[in-house]
Every structure is written in C-alpha cells, then in structure tokens.
Design a protein around this nucleic acid. Structure first.
Lengths: 202, 202
DNA sequence: TTATAAAATGAATTTTGGTTCATTTATATA
DNA sequence: TATATAAATGAACCAAAATTCATTTTATAA
C-alpha cells in the first residue's frame, strides 16, 4: 500500500465535518429545513457540493445529525441542572433555567427548535417535536409529584405543564425574533413568578 | 363585440375562486406551504393546473390571499367578542375565547397559523407573526389598564402578555398535533384559571 | 346558427435543488 | 522523487415542482 490515512488527516477531516455541521446549523436556523439548499450550505462552508456528500450521505442525514446533537445537548443540560435539586419547584425552575442558558449560548439551536419547527411532515420535524414533548413530560412529572404532596392547585397537570412550557416558549420566541424583551434573564424571573402563581403554589 | 362577461359568469368565476381558496386551505393545512404542490391543489379542486393560474398569478399570491383572509377573520372575531365587555379581565377572556372558538370551527386555519408556519424569510410568514404580535399587543393593553387600576401584580406587562398568549398557544398546538388535551373547551377553563392566578389577579 | 371572445385544458417548458461522477489535487509510503 | 490512494472539485445529471402556451371548450351576441 502506498497511502494510509494518518492521524493528522483524520483530525482535519473531523474538524471539517464539525465545520459543516456548524455552518448547516446557521443556515437551517435562518431558513427552514426545506428552505435551505445543500448548495448554499456547501458554499457557506467553503467546500464544493460534492465534498459535502463525502461527509453525509444526503441532506436528511445531515439534518438528522444536527437534531441528534441538539437533542442530547439540550436534554442533557436540563437533566444535569435538575439533578442538583430534589424539591419539585426547584426542579421546575432548573429545567427552564437550563433551557434559557442553552438558548442564550446557542441562538441557532433556539431558532431551529422554536422557530423553524413547524409541520410534522418530515422526519426532521417530528424529532424536534419530540424534544418539545419531552420537556412537557418532564414538567408534568414534577407537577404530578407536587400535586400528590398537596402543594399545588388541583388543576389538570398536563394542561398546566403545557401552559408552563408554552409561556417560556413564547417569550423566548419573541426575544429571538425581535429582541423583545431585551433582557431575557430578567424576563425569566418574571416568568417564573408568573408560573408559580399560575400553578397555585401552596 | 361578440362576447362580454355576464353577471352569471362573473358569479361562477367568483365561486370557483372561493372553491380554489377553500381547497388550498385544506391542502396547506395538511402539508406545509413548501410541501404542497400547485398540481395537488388543482387536482383536488378539480381544475387543470393552468386554470389555477388564471385566478392567481402564482403560488405565493395564493397563500397570501389565504393568510390575508385568515388575518381579518381571526382578528375580526377577536375584536367583536371583546367589544361585548368593558372590564379588563373580561376582555382578556373574550380574546382567548374568540381564538379558541375560531380554531375549533376552522381547524385548517389553526393548523396553517400555528403549525405549518414555514421558515422566517418568507413574506407571508411575516404576516403570521403580525397576527401573533397583534394579539400580544391587545393583551398587553388590557394588562396595562388593569395595572393602573391596581388590580394586578406589578410585573412587566409585556412579559405577562407573552406568557398569557404563549400558554394558550402551546395547548392549542398540542391539541392540533396529537389531540391532547382531548377537550379543548375544558382545557380553556383550566388555562384561564392558570393565567388569572399567574397575572396576580387582585 | 354562427362568429367572436372568454375560460379551461394539460402537455411542454423552465426552474430549482438534490445527487453523482469523471477529473484534479493532496497526502503518504517506497 | 515516483506512485498509489485518499480527498476534493464542480459541472453534469436527474427528479420534482412551478409556470407557460398552443389548443380546445364554453358562453355571448348579432
């Protein structure tokens, strides 16, 4: 044999793959999945379109990789943050605080998850919806626990969990779209108070 | 001249245009804007693809017409319902009740407005955002009024208004996507209580 | 009834965007 | 340095979907 991939090259390729993913996240965040073309991603990543296909078998596998990463990144942060508390209300707060932290740090992820989500028509979107539902499920579990402890109003915990998540979601979306409210951290405190009252914290 | 459009024909054309719009709403609601083809719309409306272009200059003008109509239909209902009350809390409730009523009656509208929203850079998508922001604005006005009356907690009314609208939005989206909660009317009552507590109704 | 113009048709054309592949460039070993 | 193989290129290819247009059908008025 006259050639075998060396470590240096392997690292270079890895780095290039990360570069493609990073660029794709930016492009998907601005336009939707259906709205962005592979050619655009390739051009922005400064590679030929054919090169992209050396790293990903097709458009779908690229977006799948992105969603998989976002999935574990976000839910990982949430679970880490929650693990620091045992009290139900604290865990609730921890979940949303983790979300906000990640979204502030990774605005592109927030845009893909919250703005570009829409229809359920392709595999990509249904994965995104999965993340959302997972968060609602976690929230509902906290609420059920608090309810059995008698520390909550008797309302339907599923609806309450959706209201809880939805209120955060809306504020974050507006922040992403038009920088209103300007200070998301501050809004977070307001939101937390709003929802604790809403839940009927006893 | 040997031919001039008569009233009977004019009416027939009008009716056909309505028929196309109605069909398109159904198709756009199921697939997204980008996901539906003109041919599908035409076939479902039982006309040739070319015929559709006699009524709309292109795909975009069709969706624009649809969004324009939804815009006035929904906001019209909201304003009508609000006009029946003077008290701030009543007006708040009236807004959301109007939304829910319209969405239950016109599920296709709800799906297009809340789920099939495509990417950000689309002209008609900004109209959708307009509707959402208009509702938040109306809500904020109610909250400001209530605040000056000292009937509300002192929290930021913009964030509260977003939380308010967002909580409803989330529940309606889940209802559209997976029929959970099953009974939207009942969820509405729960949501209303949740938000009134959240607002710090005094 | 017939001539004329409107309305409708759907196959043909154009556009768009994902994917491939023959060719070129870079890298590693002898 | 020469050679074999990996990696990269981007024009060409292909499929799907938007749009057009030559032709046919329908409606009006003389």
């Amino acid at each position: 044999m006259a050639y075998r991939q060396t470590n240096k090259v392997k690292e270079k390729l890895d780095h290039k793959k990360r570069e493609i993913i990073k660029t794709a996240r930016e492009v998907f965040a601005e336009n939707s999945y259906q709205g962005t073309s592979i050619k655009t991603v390739a051009k922005k990543a400064k590679i030929a379109t054919g090169t992209l296909y050396l790293y990903f078998t097709n458009k779908e596998s690229l977006i799948n990789m992105i969603v998989d990463e976002m999935f574990s990144e976000l839910l990982g942060c949430i679970k880490d943050e929650r693990a620091m508390y045992t009290d139900g209300f604290d865990k609730l707060q921890a979940s949303m605080e983790a979300c906000i932290k990640v979204f502030i740090k990774e605005k592109n992820m927030a845009k893909i998850l919250l703005i570009q989500v829409p229809g359920v028509n392709n595999a990509f979107n249904s994965r995104l919806i999965e993340i959302e539902n997972e968060l609602i499920k976690l929230t509902k579990e906290d609420l059920d626990e608090l309810k059995t402890q008698g520390r909550l109003s008797g309302d339907d915990t599923l609806v309450s969990a959706m209201a809880f998540v939805g209120s955060f979601r809306q504020v974050i979306i507006n922040w992403l779209r038009e920088e209103k409210p300007e200070n998301l951290e501050e809004a977070f405190a307001t939101l937390m108070r709003y929802n604790l009252r809403g839940l009927g914290k006893a």
